[in-house]
């Protein structure tokens, strides 16, 4: 499938209002995706919400992706829908982990109230701090949890129990397909 040569309408409108804000875009099955620069993110989102030709009045989803080893490391992905005009848009914005603004992004919970808990979940799982958020604390995990589990460098076996775990007598090791020495498994983080 070859992309149409002319710029699709939503991308064109954003580019018209904020030249240079859209760093990448594509279109698939009639839905557009734009990648915006981090410093223009809030302005673009405000435009998307309030512009009479865009009118994105529904924030469908907000999440993040961890591209460990790349720069910028994280990408926050927001899905928007306009109930009155019937079109959709996916907005991506890169969030780096270096520099004074490391892992931060302006909150959009002032524009869409629904974004409040999505941003809290995103903070919980990826440690991205949303500046200006009214109540940025963990949504799903407990307060004593250290780290952010959906980061790619979080150890997949690392658990943080809140009660003292009873000992296991023997444990089937699925990787090596045998019963391991119980003293061995006790030393492994479970």
């Amino acid at each position: 499938m070859t992309a149409p040569a002319e710029t699709p309408p939503i991308t064109a409108r954003v580019e018209e209002k904020f030249p240079g804000a859209v760093t990448a875009s594509h279109q698939q099955f009639g839905d557009e995706t734009i990648t915006v620069a981090k410093d223009q993110y809030l302005a673009v989102m405000t435009l998307l919400r309030n512009d009479p030709t865009l009118k994105f009045n529904l924030m469908v989803d907000l999440s993040a992706v961890d591209f460990l080893g790349q720069s910028p490391r994280f990408q926050v992905v927001v899905h928007l829908k306009s109930l009155s005009l019937g079109h959709r848009l996916r907005v991506k914005v890169g969030v780096g982990e270096d520099g004074p603004e490391a892992c931060t992004l302006p909150t959009i919970s002032k524009l869409w109230v629904a974004a409040d808990w999505y941003e809290r979940e995103c903070f919980d799982m990826y440690g991205i701090r949303f500046q200006g958020h009214p109540n940025l604390k963990r949504l799903l995990l407990y307060e004593s949890f250290v780290g952010h589990p959906l980061r790619k460098d979080y150890d997949i076996h690392l658990q943080q129990p809140r009660v003292e775990l009873r000992p296991v007598r023997e444990r089937y090791d699925y990787q090596n397909r045998n019963l391991t020495d119980p003293s061995e498994t006790e030393r492994r983080p479970l």
Partner: peptide, 15 residues
């Protein structure tokens, strides 16, 4: 589930 969230068997908590 073998991840950050799930207890690996209820018997780790109660008999």
């Amino acid at each position: 589930y073998q991840n950050y969230a799930v207890v690996q068997g209820l018997d780790r908590v109660i008999p």
